[in-house]
Each structure stands twice: as C-alpha cells, then as structure tokens.
C-alpha cells in the first residue's frame, strides 16, 4: 500500500512540531525517516497512524484520503505500527499478545462464545516461530527482558499482516546480536509491504532503506536515495559530518 502526506503541519501552541512536511512513499518501498532528537519523526508517524490530528495537511493511504479516519480505521486499511516505548499487553502471555493481533486482522473479536480457534492457534505458533520467540510463548509480556520486548513489539505489528508498516525506533536499546536479528527479520518481509522506519541506528538505516527522508526541527531538509542523502550538505551539517 502506498502512503503519502501532503503539507503536514502540527503545532503545539507556538511550537511547530511539523512544518509543511510532504512524504510520498510508493507501495513496497523501504523508507527511513531520520533526524536529530526533536526533529518531529515520531509526530510524523503519529499523524500518519491517526493518533494526532494535523493542524494542516492531509494523509492518504492506498490512494484514499485518510485524514479524518481514526487510528483503527487506518489499521483496517492495512496500516500497522510499532511504538518507540514498547506498548504490549503486559499481563497477557506472548502467545495471547500475538493472538490479539491476528484477531484484529480476522475481525473475530465480536464472537461471544469460546470454542476451538484451531486456525488462530496454528497461525499464532507459526508467527511465534517466524519471529524466533516460540520459547517465550507462555511468558507474560510484562516479564520479558528489554530486547525480547522490542522484538515482540515488532512481531505484534507484523502479526496483523499490515500492507504498510510504520516502525518507531525498533532497534532502540537492542544488543548487537538482537539488532542483527531484527534487521534480518525486517529484510525478510514480503516485497510488497511498505515500510517506513524511524531509527537512530544509521547502519541499520543504510542497510534497509531504499530512500531516506531527513527531518530537522519539524522541516524536511532532504529526501532521496542513501547516496544522495549522504552527499547532501545540509544533512552533513545537521549530523556534524557524522553520516
């Protein structure tokens, strides 16, 4: 699913967290959004996901105007997301966490009687295995270690089979080994899934992204292929030549 944002502006009082930001992501594209802290990256994701109403501008998902839609409607259009701070169902087991995501896609939450959910259970174990977390299936999410939590955060979003995925710093706080695994996992996603990733780990960004958008103080300062962005003078300035 392609997604686009046109002229997004978000103001908190006098402060503009986003200032006329445009974003055009083609279906199946791997896009990274980078920038220093406070550049407005998370705000951008929140606006695309529908958690934040933009002060101005519009969001389109799969060619459809999504600006007035609440988050759950956008999710039903095929938009998935992860959060910067893990938001899991901490009292539920890892398997039950994943099951909720699968039910979300199947829209089977309105069944009022229990009974066999064989198809669901099979899919849950398949997904736990694919994510390499089958050994954690029966553990409550609240008792996972930080790295395991971050991985479940991503698996939870994937379990809803999104056609476009917003990832908010999926690598934050992961060990080198865990980073590698997560990177592999993201690379193994079906080609048609659109990915927008906000990430501070620059190596991961360059390993994954086909195009990169750079934000600074709520303004888009660059947009292009990794090579173009690396060569961009403004970007080098913002990153103090560290790119």
């Amino acid at each position: 699913m392609d997604l686009s944002a046109v002229g997004l502006t978000v103001r908190f009082g006098a402060l503009a967290a986003l200032n006329r930001v445009d974003l055009e992501v083609a279906a199946g594209e791997r896009r990274a959004v980078i920038g220093p802290n406070g550049a407005g990256k998370t705000t951008l994701l929140n606006v695309i996901a529908g958690e934040h109403r933009p002060t101005e501008g519009s969001v389109r998902l799969g060619g459809r105007d999504a600006t007035p839609l609440p988050p759950w409607r956008r999710a039903r259009l095929g938009l998935g997301r992860t959060f910067q701070r893990s938001t899991l169902f901490s009292q539920l087991t890892v398997a039950d966490n994943i099951a909720l995501a699968v039910r979300a896609r199947n829209r089977s939450g309105w069944r009022f009687w229990p009974g066999s959910e064989d198809g669901l259970n099979q899919e849950v174990s398949r997904r736990l295995e694919a994510g390499g977390i089958e050994h954690l299936a029966r553990r409550p999410a609240g008792r996972l270690g930080h790295g395991e939590r971050r991985i479940l955060e991503v698996e939870l979003a994937l379990a809803a089979s999104p056609s476009a995925l917003l990832l908010d710093e999926p690598m934050a706080g992961l060990s080198g080994d865990e980073r590698q695994k997560t990177l592999e996992r993201l690379r193994s996603l079906p080609k048609e899934v659109t990915v927008v990733i906000v990430e501070h780990d620059i190596d991961a960004v360059f390993a994954l992204a086909e195009r990169i958008t750079v934000l600074d103080h709520g303004v888009k300062i660059a947009d292009g292929t990794p090579t173009e962005v690396r060569a961009n003078a403004r970007v080098q300035e913002v990153y103090l030549g560290g790119l």
């Binding site: 609440p70 988050p71 759950w72 999710a75 959060f83 896609r105």
Partner: peptide, 8 residues
C-alpha cells in the same frame, strides 16, 4: 492505544 493501532 495498541488495540486501536491494531484495528479494533
């Protein structure tokens, strides 16, 4: 919040 993001 997460449930909404999942589509409920």
């Amino acid at each position: 919040r997460r449930m909404r993001a999942l589509g409920f």
